[in-house]
């Protein structure tokens, strides 16, 4: 709201009228980098799903999932503005930077949430829409409002929200859940803890200052390193599951095994190097490789399906 009438007698600074946010600030609220991951994984789920959906409807379905993911990001920033203001990684976000008010971010997030869910229901089916609504609910209410500030297992359980988009993409075509879509879910779900804990090791001070009970803050860095290795071990077979379950070729099987072993190698390096700057570098290397890993796994599945190899 930019041009409002205020009752005389109220102090002008009493209410922040907002209206300073530019279009790019609103785009930043959508967490575009997270959105790109959502779009990519959802597209893979959609392409792998059996059935014929008109390409235009597929495009709109992906758009809805992307907007729904973005809306979750905006609502996350609405709720977490106090934490974001303390952490170096997030203090330049639109709300702590004073460009967008919390009320504006909330309204933006809610409008996009309802808009994306309703449109997906009309374009694809209401099961996919319900799954998208659940994804938004899970990320905003279960993860952001509840788990994030109350348990070091926050990102383990909360990771489910980030892992759901391929299932929504699959459901947009088929209207159901299957072993394949559950396998796609499990890949991102298992990948999330070592990915985030690697970052948490680097940004431990930030999380401590903000009072967020991330695993390194609560259980210590050593326990976090053990957990990273354990989850990386688990990720090896889970990453290969598309091949093991018979919906990817041997090439994918070998490729995912190699990628999983490299991932495990980076995790072991994080476990071994525990002091000073080299330890932070090792954690940052794992964090960067984890992004590369997920992208390649899903790109491999996408390529095999587009080329008709499976």
């Amino acid at each position: 709201m930019t041009m409002v009438e205020q009752s005389q007698g109220l102090h002008e600074d009493a209410v922040d009228l907002g209206g300073r946010g530019s279009v790019s600030d609103y785009i930043a609220l959508l967490k575009p980098r997270v959105m790109s991951l959502v779009v990519f994984t959802a597209a893979v789920g959609l392409v792998m799903a059996p059935g014929n959906q008109h390409p235009f409807l597929s495009f709109i379905s992906i758009l809805c999932i992307a907007i729904g993911g973005g809306a979750s990001g905006a609502l996350n920033m609405w709720w977490d503005a106090d934490i974001d203001a303390v952490m170096s990684r997030t203090k330049k976000r639109p709300i702590p930077a004073g460009k967008i008010t919390r009320a504006e971010a909330f309204a933006f997030g809610m409008v996009l949430s309802f808009g994306s869910v309703l449109t997906l229901g009309l374009v694809a089916n209401w099961f996919a829409a319900a799954l998208l609504a659940f994804t938004i609910f899970f990320y905003v209410v279960i993860y952001t409002m509840w788990l994030k500030r109350s348990t070091p297992q926050n990102i383990v359980i909360g990771g489910a929200a980030g892992a759901l988009p391929p299932m929504v993409g699959w459901a947009a075509v088929t209207g159901d859940v299957s072993l394949v879509s559950i396998a796609l879910f499990m890949i991102t779900f298992t990948w999330t803890p070592p990915h985030f804990w690697a970052l948490a090791l680097v940004k431990n001070g930030d999380y401590q200052d903000a009072g967020v009970p991330m695993l390194p803050v609560v259980a210590g860095e050593t326990a976090t390193r053990h957990q990273i290795v354990l989850y990386s071990l688990l990720l090896l077979p889970v990453g290969m599951s598309p091949y093991l379950l018979g919906f990817a070729t041997e090439v994918f099987g070998v490729g995912s095994a190699v990628l999983g072993l490299i991932f495990l190698g980076y995790a072991v390096r994080v476990w071994r190097i525990r002091e000073g700057e080299p330890a932070k570098k090792a954690a940052m290397s794992l964090f960067k490789f984890s992004l590369f890993y997920l992208m390649l796994i899903f790109a491999g599945l996408l390529a095999e399906n587009v080329m008709g190899l499976v």
Partner: peptide
């Protein structure tokens, strides 16, 4: 009850124009 209008800064006017076009 008498009312008072909030005056927009140049920055707010520019941001609003951008938002209006985007909408």
């Amino acid at each position: 009850m008498s009312k008072q209008k909030a005056v927009l800064s140049d920055e707010q006017v520019k941001a609003r124009r951008g938002r209006s076009v985007a909408l």
